[in-house]
Design a protein around this nucleic acid. Structure first.
Lengths: 141, 141
DNA sequence: AAAAATTAGTTGGTTATTTAACTATCTGTG
DNA sequence: CACAGATAGTTAAATAACCAACTAATTTTT
């Protein structure tokens, strides 16, 4: 049954991804699901290190190098050397990046609201507990 | 909260993936997580069309073209033209592919058993219902 | 039966992920 | 202070995902 469950998890992730990508395309926003994951972190707080972004998005640091290059090409973020630790680079939003946040955040709210229709707080909490338990199992196993 | 939940889903998927890839590497089996997803379908029943594999693994048909090329290079599967519908190609396991199944299936059982430690049937069922509800929400929305 | 629509698979192009090897910088211990 | 080890980021190469456009075969419409 755990197999069916993980299959369902993948299906949900795919549907969320598909839905959001479609929204971006419909509004002629050149942003992938992966880039948006990074932008969400930055919309909350920018001027953070690439490694922090990697940790928050559960991605490898090499993926971040690549993703930030692409976001930079699109004029949404800039890299700045960290004066305190010259190994690090801090990522800042450009004005364009901030503007995009104002447009895209409501879409995200809308999407997660849609996903939560007829799902009670309790149900969601219980499911989160279950998934967390499974994560811990695999991590420590 | 739905955001946190989807974050957890990604985390679980990543952990399962990481754990299994490590198992393959430790045993010098040149198989990625994605290839294994295809193989699982074939170990259950081979001689099926690429499109069926795409549907079952939630992947695009173009991904299957690519994955089957790679599985073919590794000598695990063969493509055969479907006599009944010459557009289709049926994918069959080679002997090597079948042998691999005998080795790898126990690893999968083990992994999902590990993931299910201290998770009751009821919890899992309830979580599946919740996730299914969310999938339906997004699909129909 | 001919034309139109659908379906299976491939190809090309862009984007993303992961491993390994690499550079540069920082930290801690002797 | 020196040096070993850790950390931040980059690069290269292999694998993977996905869209659009395409070919070939089949099914549906008219």
């Amino acid at each position: 049954m755990a197999r069916q469950f993980t299959h369902l998890l993948l299906e949900l992730r795919d549907e969320l991804r598909r839905h959001l990508q479609q929204k971006f395309r419909d509004n002629i926003v050149s942003l992938t699901y992966e880039m948006h994951q990074v932008m969400v972190c930055l919309w909350t707080k920018d001027g953070i290190r690439q490694q922090d972004l990697a940790d928050k998005t559960l991605k490898d640091k090499t993926s971040l190098t690549y993703l930030i290059d692409n976001l930079n090409k699109r004029g949404l973020v800039t890299r700045m050397e960290d004066k305190k630790d010259r190994r690090s680079k801090l990522i800042f939003l450009t004005n364009k990046g901030k503007e995009l946040g104002k447009i895209a955040e409501p879409w995200l709210e809308e999407l997660y609201k849609l996903a939560s229709i007829k799902v009670t707080i309790t149900e969601m909490e219980e499911s989160m507990k279950t998934v967390q338990k499974m994560i811990d199992n695999v991590k420590t196993g």
